[in-house]
């Protein structure tokens, strides 16, 4: 079964079409990247798929559940790590994780087990008692992803997870994302071409709400006839495949 099946998904804001009749399928366990310049429709697509924004028309099915009719079921399957770091700044790292366990209705035992597991997976032991608002950007991103993983999602949306991070923090997060690959279907949006190329099984490139291409990085480069993925992206966005 496809993890995500998108059928003519459209979002219109008055005169602006943010996403225009998007259709594609994403397999289970796939790491799928959405690329595009600002305003391409990446974040709007993620917001629709995670039931944060209602589509104007079309539909999408996450593991068979409709984002329009089965909102509660969809929410139980997914987790989102939003573009900005979404942590409670006044709470400690542990309290942030406890908050997410609580809103998912975990028992005390399950909560402790899950927090221990994710603390170890994301290397949060050293900052577990520190206030989230006092952490560096890299640690806040790690915490943000840990909070997303609390609910054991089948599908994880990572909206620009490495934005603004230094090269070491970015490399660490790449390792983390790679470690999740295969177990969870991951939808990643990013502005970094090398990130998409290094991590993704397939990449979709959007412009003005429209899907321009969807394939592996190698195939996209081959289709444009260049060796560098960034060049391929630039040419596609400028109309090379039209």
């Amino acid at each position: 079964m496809d993890a995500i099946k998108i059928e003519s998904l459209t979002k219109r804001y008055r005169d602006v079409i943010a996403v225009d009749s998007l259709s594609l399928c994403i397999g289970e366990g796939e790491l799928f990247s959405l690329l595009g310049v600002n305003g391409a429709g990446k974040t709007t697509t993620i917001k629709m798929l995670s039931c944060l924004t209602e589509p104007t028309s079309g539909n999408a099915y996450l593991l068979g559940k409709s984002i329009r009719q089965d909102t509660a079921e969809v929410k139980s399957l997914i987790a989102v790590s939003p573009q900005e770091t979404a942590v409670a700044p006044g709470l400690s790292v542990r309290e942030n994780l406890e908050l997410m366990c609580g809103v998912h209705g975990f028992t005390k035992d399950k909560q402790n087990a899950k927090i221990n597991e994710l603390t170890e997976l994301l290397g949060l032991e050293g900052v577990i008692s520190r206030k989230a608002g006092k952490l560096s950007g890299g640690w806040q991103r790690r915490l943000s992803i840990a909070m997303a993983l609390i609910s054991e999602p089948k599908i994880l949306f990572l909206d620009e997870p490495t934005l603004g991070l230094d090269v070491i923090a970015r490399s660490d997060l790449w390792d983390l994302i790679r470690s999740l690959k295969g177990n969870i279907t991951i939808i990643l949006t990013t502005h970094y071409m090398e990130e998409a190329e290094a991590l993704s099984d397939r990449i979709a490139i959007m412009k003005d709400g429209t899907l321009l291409v969807c394939d592996t990085a190698e195939n996209i480069k081959a289709a444009v006839g260049v060796d560098d993925f960034e060049q391929a992206f630039i040419r596609i966005v400028k109309g090379a495949l039209q």
């Binding site: 995670s50 929410k75 939003p82 900005e84 979404a86 809103v103 209705g105 909070m147 997303a148 609910s151």
Partner: peptide, 13 residues
Amino acid sequence: GGSLLQRLYTTPL
């Protein structure tokens, strides 16, 4: 103003 609410809107709350 932040994204915490956005995250919580995708939970069963």
